[in-house]
């Protein structure tokens, strides 16, 4: 069993029992989409709610492209489209006064809302989430148990989804 890092903008899919890991997550959303039966699963590390064309970033970076692309890759590796489910973690607000150019909501919240919207549009049920708050999280997903372990910097306890 190996552990694969999933950095900002990455989409990583595994067919075999492995761990997918995102460390030091703040306002980003970590989205896991999985097929319970075959245990084929993938993780996306999403930074922004909407694609910025001039950015030239990978599809995994933006909610509007990441969700669809993650579904596509899980299905290509053998996941059953009708059985897919999801879990999400992140979307924290680290600083109170961050300059937010789009009105009242902070980027963490906007990411969460965008991801949920795209999951709904694609008919993928969200079965668990650990979002918002003001703390950083490190996230490890084990595809063999379908469990997510969430570690916080300043707590001694972990959380499991």
């Amino acid at each position: 069993m190996e552990t694969f890092p999933v950095r900002i903008g990455d989409i990583v899919v595994t067919q075999n029992p492995n761990k997918l890991e995102a460390l030091g997550v703040g306002s980003c959303i970590i989205l896991v989409i999985y097929d319970e039966i075959t245990k084929i699963a993938g993780m996306a590390h999403i930074l922004l709610p909407e694609t910025i064309k001039s950015d030239n970033g990978p599809p995994g970076k933006y909610a509007d492209s990441a969700v669809i692309e993650l579904i596509r890759q899980v299905v290509i590796k053998g996941g059953n489209r009708n059985r897919l489910k999801s879990k999400m973690v992140g979307g924290a607000r680290m600083f109170e006064l961050s300059s937010q150019t789009e009105g009242i909501l902070d980027v963490g919240k906007r990411n969460a809302i965008a991801v949920k919207l795209w999951l709904e549009k694609n008919g993928i049920p969200l079965v668990a989430e650990d979002i918002s708050g003001s703390q950083g999280r490190s996230i490890t997903y084990d595809s063999s148990t379908n469990q997510i372990e969430i570690r916080y910097a300043l707590h001694t306890y972990n959380r499991y989804l």
């Binding site: 900002i8 460390l23 030091g24 997550v25 703040g26 306002s27 980003c28 930074l47 922004l48 910025i52 001039s54 950015d55 030239n56 970033g57 924290a92 607000r93 680290m94 600083f95 109170e96 006064l97 961050s98 300059s99 937010q100 150019t101 902070d106 980027v107 963490g108 703390q135 950083g136 999280r137 490190s138 910097a153 300043l154």
Partner: peptide, 25 residues
């Protein structure tokens, strides 16, 4: 006013880069 944050460096910088990135990411 200044804001103090003690946490993982990745978590701290994510929000900053998403609201401040300039010129092609």
């Amino acid at each position: 006013v200044p804001e103090l944050k003690i946490d993982m460096i990745g978590s701290i910088t994510e929000e900053i880069i998403s609201t401040n990135s300039i010129k092609n990411g």
